[in-house]
Computed example of a mutant assay.
Amino acid sequence: MSVLLAVAALPCGLLIGLLLGALGGGGSVLAVPALVYLLGQSPHEATAGALIVVTVGAVTGLVCHARARRVHWAAGTALGVLGTAGSYLGSRWSAALPPGVLMAAFAALMLVVAAMLARRGLRERRTTDTPTESATGDVTGAPAATTPLRDPVRDDLIAEPVRVPEPVRDHPAPDPVRVPVKVSRVAATASAIGLLTGFFGVGGGFVVVPALTLVLGLEMPVAIGTSLLVVLINSLTALGTRAGTIALDWPLLAGFAACAALGSHLGPRLTARLRPQTLATAFACLVTVVAVVMAATAVPRL
């Protein structure tokens, strides 16, 4: 590996790891274009090498989130295991495609990822900006209104607020309704995630995080940490499928993966300093630019 390639690999791997650790997915889509256009890999070599980078970054980020207890091990393992069949098939189909078709399809995937990340940023911004109401109907954070009392003798205002007793309930409050989880929906989602991982060499975290929040009802921080477990299982399956079929530049990938591991370690700390919606929106713009450049390069060659 030349010094020029090593210098180019450092910032790319660091950025991918940062995004992977901070957002739980999406950063791996930059691995393939970085390996192809900056580091001189072929499309098939890049999709296989990206799996190594994603695997190392997922392990590092998963350890950080696990220490903070932001990983739902049962849900992550279930999604990962259910997606192994899709990951195996995706790896086989990817090897059979011409390089130009593979890169054009990857550019289309990046546009989808950018749209999903932008939508996620807008949704989180609306959730953050919307005022929440307390149990009494008052907006959270607003000062409580007080009703002045009049002394019947002095007819002066008394500063004490009126304390209205809470109504006595005859029956206990009903338990919140739980939305049933459809097994078929979870299996289909897991298979699609595995298919994306095996076919494109990406982790699929941009699909895993919405699936964990919408389908399984996990909170966003836990969904981000759990998605790394799903990414890890799918990436290992795809790597096992491609083992021995493609010659890889291991020194190059080792340096690239080491930078991704460092960035993934720092990613969870980045979420504490920056608003997740701001990070997701900025990353969506970056992915869009890269996707347009890839499409302009790959489509004329079809």
Rank of each mutant, 00 (worst) to 15 (best):
M1E: 11
S2I: 02
A6I: 07
A6D: 01
A8L: 06
I16N: 00
G17A: 08
L20M: 13
A22Y: 04
G24S: 06
A31R: 00
V36Q: 00
L38K: 00
L38H: 01
L39G: 00
P43C: 03
T55P: 04
A58P: 07
V59Y: 05
R69K: 12
A75D: 09
S87Y: 01
W93Y: 12
W93Q: 13
P98S: 13
L102V: 03
A104V: 10
A105D: 10
A107M: 05
A107Y: 04
A108L: 15
M110L: 06
V112M: 03
L122A: 14
L122V: 04
T128G: 09
D129C: 08
T130D: 07
T130C: 14
P131G: 11
P131S: 11
S134C: 07
P143R: 04
P143E: 05
A145N: 04
R150W: 04
R154L: 09
D156N: 06
A159M: 09
E166Q: 10
P167E: 08
V168L: 15
H171W: 11
A173F: 14
D175T: 14
V183T: 14
T197P: 10
G201N: 04
G204V: 11
G205F: 09
L212G: 09
L212A: 11
G217C: 05
L218S: 08
M220N: 05
V222I: 13
T226R: 12
S235N: 02
L236N: 00
A238N: 01
I246V: 15
A247T: 15
A247M: 10
L252G: 13
L252T: 15
A254M: 13
A258R: 11
R269T: 12
R269N: 10
L270Y: 07
R275H: 14
Q277G: 08
T281D: 05
A291W: 03
V292H: 03
V293W: 02
